[in-house]
């Protein structure tokens, strides 16, 4: 199998409002992939299609080789799915919920679950509904990891978590994925957490795939330069493979894209931006994300 997830030309709209405009991408086995995008970029729509909670208007999605709309039970058993907000059954306590889920999965590994739970300060008889969001996230995570799934989908794992639990969550995933046998797709708004964790990065913008490349490549090839303009700078967003962006800031304005410094000079000159003192600025994944997608929800 080449890919654990393969989206082909997914299109979907809610009424007149298009949510996905023909997105295609794939997740290769053993990789951790971050699916990023601003609010309304189409992440949740994609996740819903992946989990067959939504039938796309057109296009299809294969999970572990099966059409997502009609996953067989045996394939479902190989896919772990974290619903955004760590939704779980609140009426169970931690041992009841383990008893419930364990009966469905042949490869159930209770030790992973108990290991995670043991680190939480909870009464074993405490109902999940009375736990904090952070505690709940660990329960939900434990339940997914104990399934020993080949593919895990974490939808917005960071929702509602404080920095401590966010870090803990990432650490657990990192440890779990260390053997390189698990494929993971995750979405989040907190991009800095994903830095160094994800292997691949897919960035959605307005229902389309803006960038789909290994995270390392993005971090090394996407450059941001600042310069001192001699006059007013007109903002610019390019559509091509360079993803060229020019923005006017207070003192030093910025140009960014998959470009070297000499290309940056050329592009500025070509657009008639007279400037001096062009220099490369360090850019985190989040900086790159914002440079690519813009600070404002531009239309």
């Amino acid at each position: 199998m080449d890919s654990v997830i393969e989206c082909r030309q997914l299109c979907h709209s809610y009424g007149n409002k298009p949510a996905l405009k023909g997105v295609s991408w794939s997740l290769r086995p053993g990789r951790i992939c971050g699916l990023l995008g601003r609010n309304g970029a189409g992440k949740t729509t994609t996740i819903n299609i992946l989990n067959s909670f939504l039938s796309p208007d057109s296009g299809s999605c294969l999970l572990l080789g099966e059409d997502s709309r009609m996953l067989s039970p045996s394939t479902k058993a190989r896919i772990g799915y974290l619903i955004e907000g760590h939704v779980q059954y609140g009426f169970f306590n931690v041992s009841q919920i383990e008893r419930f889920y364990s009966s469905f999965y042949d490869k159930w590994d209770a030790s992973i679950y108990h290991h995670l739970i043991s680190r939480l300060d909870i009464d074993p008889r405490q109902k999940i509904s009375t736990m904090s969001c952070g505690q709940r996230s660990q329960v939900a995570l434990g339940l997914i990891l104990a399934q020993s799934p080949d593919l895990i989908v974490f939808d917005d794992y960071s929702m509602g978590l404080d920095p401590g639990y966010r870090r803990l969550f990432i650490d657990v995933i990192r440890d779990y994925a260390a053997n390189g046998k698990r494929s993971i797709l995750m979405t989040s708004h907190i991009i800095q957490d994903l830095e160094g964790l994800i292997d691949d990065c897919i960035i959605y913008h307005r229902g389309e795939v803006l960038v789909d490349c290994p995270a390392k490549e993005l971090e090394t090839s996407y450059k941001s330069y600042s310069f001192v303009p001699n006059g007013p700078v007109e903002g610019f967003r390019g559509e091509g493979p360079e993803h060229l962006r020019i923005e006017q800031h207070n003192k030093r304005s910025a140009i960014s894209g998959f470009i070297s410094s000499s290309v940056a000079e050329e592009r500025l000159l070509a657009r008639g931006v007279e400037h001096s003192n062009l220099r490369e600025e360090p850019a985190s994944l989040e900086d790159i994300f914002i440079a690519l997608t813009g600070k404002y929800q531009t239309r």
């Binding site: 039970p73 479902k76 619903i83 939704v87 059954y89 469905f104």
Partner: peptide, 18 residues
């Protein structure tokens, strides 16, 4: 009703049974 809060029914539908 509890299955509909946060659309929890998704948990059931994702279980490895039909």
């Amino acid at each position: 009703m509890p299955e509909l809060r946060d659309r929890r029914l998704r948990l059931v539908l994702h279980l490895p049974i039909g």
